[in-house]
Design a protein around this nucleic acid. Structure first.
Lengths: 154, 154
DNA sequence: GTTCAATCATCAGCGATACTGACAATCAGG
DNA sequence: CCTGATTGTCAGTATCGCTGATGATTGAAC
């Protein structure tokens, strides 16, 4: 992991042509943030993806696995593995749906709710630290711009 | 591929908690750009990574594969596969180093130079289209912010 | 000169990510 | 009932980028 130091040390010799390309910038910004986030979440025993699952589950009524996957923007088959892991950690529970036995209703356990809240605080803090060099305004502008890009057109 | 339409259709139902997190924004911005870039480069028979390799090689002849990898910020072992593919397409050539037979000097062929120029124009155009919704100023600000984030601290 | 650590390119293998396709169970409509 | 769609699951696949080992070569110490 901690390739942050190595990356930074090597970054000096990177081709400037390259570092001006948006693809490179997005990729490496994501990598750096992922490193920070991973370190911040490590004490809570969940990774960034699992935290996202917990957040989605906490957000509305208990949902089927498929609906949760839709809200997360991931595949239904990927959700299976996430829930397997989270269930094994005692953070979520699968219950059969009352009126549709095909479905699993997925709920956070008490431990799941607590872990979610704590991990989320840590994740937000990591994001804040990551954005700190930009200052408040530029940081917010960055997020707005990214959101606009994602939601534009089709 | 072309999951762009599907993504956009599904994006409406995404959790707002989620879409406000920087990790999500960076990841999906990168995905969308990658799709556009892949489509733009497809006529030239190279993908985004191969174009990046070509650009680094064009920038100055690296004295070894390892040096090229360093300038690209990738692993030396990954460079082997990239050069295998590019060599097979006739875009680069490996020559033994004059004074150190451990090294390969990697050169662009004429076809490689032409492909690089054309693919690069197409890639830049894709980036421009991707950034278009933001307008000139915000687009430039986005890139500056990302660069600042990547280069900050260690 | 010989020996030895370091460097280079290469290859096999692994781990993470995220998909497709197939499957059985279940539901809803006619 | 039948049929077609939906749900959760699993196996298989593809991509990406790494680690570790190997063999060739180099440079330097002795």
């Amino acid at each position: 992991m901690s390739s942050a130091a190595k990356d930074a040390a090597a970054a000096a010799e990177r081709s400037p042509e390259l570092t001006s390309r948006l693809g490179y910038l997005l990729k490496h910004a994501q990598l750096r943030l992922a490193e920070l986030t991973a370190a911040a979440l490590e004490p809570f025993g969940v990774n960034g993806r699992e935290l996202a699952v917990l957040m989605v589950l906490a957000e509305g009524e208990p949902a089927s696995q498929q609906e949760a996957a839709r809200r997360l923007g991931i595949d239904r088959t990927s959700m299976v593995a996430f829930l397997d892991a989270l269930e094994e950690k005692g953070l979520v529970e699968r219950h059969p749906h009352a009126h549709d036995r095909r479905r699993n209703v997925v709920e956070l356990t008490t431990a799941g709710r607590e872990t979610m809240r704590a991990a989320r605080r840590a994740g937000d803090e990591a994001e804040r630290r990551f954005l700190a060099p930009l200052g408040r305004t530029a940081g917010a502008a960055l997020k707005e711009s990214l959101l606009a890009l994602i939601e534009s057109k089709g």
